[in-house]
Design a protein around this nucleic acid. Structure first.
Length: 422
RNA sequence: GGAGAGGUGGCUGAGUGGUCGAAAGCAGCGCUUUGCUAAAGCGCCGUAGGUGUAACAGCCUACCGGGGGUUCGAAUCCCCCCCUCUCCGCCA
């Protein structure tokens, strides 16, 4: 959520910033709503003050006295009017709040102009994409692939996009997760194992609700949502809390399975491990001092990049242009790994600064030296998502003998230096 | 799932219809005094919104788990829900 005061005092600044994201927003309607809400608020509060003053007076009068009885009669009318006007106030307040929740976060000034993914800026590259594997092919075409990752059985048991991992397939998933978590802890993140269902308040705080409920699986009977990312339970850990300034930055990492309905995203990039409804991911998250958030964003991105470097996977870093920065983010980098078989980049991490957008919704604050609470900034990024990393490993490291050679960093976790199919 | 007890400010904890935004203690902040790793005394000390201000201040309103209700008036009474604890049931 945006700072209502900023919107009120600098609407043109907000309008320009939203335009940079190429999002349609009726700002004038929201401003009108804001003005109407404040006018009604003043009316209701004036009435309340009147009845409150009368009540204080009445408390001093003898209960059955004529003055008392007269006052009761008089105040009955005021009370009724308060009630009537409160109803109108609640109505406009609800609209106003919904409108504020519909406003996206403003992009940071360092976000490049642009409307489409093609206009994202290649910020950095690492490794070389050529001559990775002479026998590289899309991972789903590797002989024996379905012996270790079984989409057919997953589809029977649950549905499309819910594969079984078997044997070395299951083992490599576990090895990657453990590697990711160990690296995160080494980098100073505290490991957390969070709930994988969250309530509506949590999903609202991080920006999944309202409007994006169609992207989450919902346990209707209980009002819970299956987490689309560990970001949701992790960020909400401190919801409605005030942190110590000295404790910042707070750094945490969590593994969870992630559940995404991916409604409307069926298309060319859904084959194999490229896009799943359930996948494993380690998420890195920081609660930071507002003055430090862009430094901390770079540090977090470096933490994610280091994983790819240790896995010896070529990758590039994209700085997302205004049109491709998400609804809640102020700035976003994507890490994309090269998949030699598909000859394409696969997004494996998205590192974002939300500034105070989530913190305001979630009321996560810290107490400053002068004692006043102030909103923190939240930063998060994958570190990393398993299936696409696995896809790149399978494609880039495929050997002529049909096995997949594993990078040295993974060998202690996997227990062998090569993965076999079947 | 059943029965009982409870949810009050950063923490502990009073408060069963009006003078309660809420005693007291702890923690924190400021001042004073004495002074060797500290003690005593005094004062201040919730959050949010609105209004107001150059910015403070001030003023107003709301908030005692959440939501409704009764009443001129609710932390206090009634209803529903959530959560915590104890016991029972079930269960990895």
């Amino acid at each position: 959520m945006l700072d209502p005061k900023l919107l009120r005092e600098s609407p043109e600044l907000v309008r320009a910033a939203i335009a940079k994201k190429y999002l349609e927003v009726d700002l004038d309607a929201i401003l009108a709503l804001d003005a109407a809400w404040r006018a009604q608020l003043v009316e209701v509060e004036t009435l309340r003050a009147k009845s409150k003053a009368a009540n204080t007076e009445m408390a001093k009068l003898p209960k059955g006295s004529p003055e008392f009885i007269a006052k009761v009669q008089e105040m009955k009318a005021v009370s009724a009017e308060v009630k009537a006007r409160e109803a109108g106030l609640v109505e406009i307040e609800t609209k106003h709040k919904a409108a504020m929740l519909s406003l996206p976060n403003l992009p940071h000034q360092s976000v490049p102009e642009g409307r489409t993914p093609e206009q994202n800026v290649t910020f950095a590259t690492w490794g070389t994409c050529e001559a990775l594997s002479p026998v590289a092919k899309p991972h789903w075409e590797i002989p024996g692939f379905d012996k270790i990752i079984d989409f057919g059985r997953g589809s029977k048991v649950t549905g499309a996009g819910f594969p079984f991992y078997i044997g070395d397939g299951a083992r490599i998933v576990r090895a990657l997760l453990q590697f990711f978590l160990d690296e995160a802890v080494t980098a100073g993140y505290t490991e957390v194992n969070p709930p994988i269902f969250v309530n509506a308040a949590s999903a609202t705080a991080t920006g999944q609700l309202p409007d994006k409920e169609g992207q989450m699986y919902e346990a209707v009977a209980d009002g819970f949502y299956a987490v689309p990312t560990a970001e949701v339970p992790l960020t909400n850990f401190f919801r409605d809390e005030i942190l110590d300034e000295a404790a910042l930055p707070v750094k945490r990492a969590a593994y969870t399975p992630c559940f995404r309905r991916e409604a409307g995203s069926y298309g060319k990039d859904v084959r194999g491990l490229n896009r799943l409804h359930q996948f494993d991911k380690v998420e890195l998250l920081k609660w930071v001092h507002p003055t430090q958030s862009y430094i901390e964003l770079d540090l977090l991105r470096a933490d994610a990049e280091r994983l790819l470097q240790k896995l010896e996977l070529p990758y590039r870093v994209l700085l997302m242009c205004g049109g491709d920065v998400g609804f809640s983010q102020a700035k976003k980098y994507d890490l994309e790994v090269w998949a030699a078989g598909q000859q394409r980049w696969l997004e494996v991490s998205s590192c974002s600064n939300f500034e105070a957008f989530q913190a305001r919704r979630a009321q996560i604050r810290f107490r400053k030296g002068d004692g006043k609470p102030e909103l923190v900034h939240t930063i998060n990024g994958s570190g990393l998502a398993v299936p696409r990393v696995l896809a790149a490993l399978l494609e880039n490291n495929l050997q002529a003998d049909g096995t997949v050679k594993l990078p040295a960093a993974l060998v202690p976790y996997f227990g062998r230096d090569a993965l076999r199919f079947g």
